[in-house]
Amino acid sequence: MEVYLLILLVLMILGSLYSLHARDLLSAVISYGIVGFGLVLSFLFLQAPDLAIVQVVVEVITLIIMIAVIKNTSREELPRQTNYKIAINFIIILIFAVVFFYIFNRMTGMLSEFGDHFTRMATPYIEGSGKTGSANLVTGIVFDFRAYDTLGEATVLFTAVIGVLTILRIKGRKKEE
C-alpha cells in the first residue's frame, strides 16, 4: 500500500517539475494533470471515495478550462528573465530548507504512525452520526454538523464566479471605447 503511494508521489513530483520547465504551455497544463489524477488514485488507496469523485471531476473540468484559456491566448511561454545572483538565491534556498525541515520535524514528531486514526475532534461526530439520519457519514457531517462551512464554500464559489464575470467584462468594455 505505502509502496503504491510512494510511486504515485514520485510520479506527481515528476509531473509538476516537468510542467514548470515545459516550453509549450499546453503540455505544461497536461503534465500538471498528472498531479491531479495521481491525487485521485491516492485518495482511492486511502479509502476516501467522496474526495476521489470530487477530485476527478474537478480535475477534468479544470483541464478543459485551462485548455480553453490557452487556445484563446498563446501557447508559448514568455521569455524568462534570468537572475545571475546565484549565491544569494542559494543561501535563501538553504535557509528556507533548514527552517522548513526543523519545523516539519517538530510538528510531525508527536503524531502517531501513518495510517493510525487520530480523531480527537472527529470522535463526537462519528458517535453522533445517527442523529443526522444520513447513511453517508461524510454528507451528514458536511451538511449538518458543519453546515456553516458548506455555506462558506458556496459563498466562495459564488464570489469567484462574480469576480470572473466582472474582470472579463471590464476588459471587453475598455476596448469598445
Partner: peptide
C-alpha cells in the same frame, strides 16, 4: 448524496 459517496459538490460538477 446522503446514501452513497458523492453529494452536491461532486454531482454539480458532473
Amino acid at each position: 448524496g446522503h446514501l452513497t459517496p458523492g453529494g452536491g459538490f461532486a454531482g454539480g460538477v458532473i
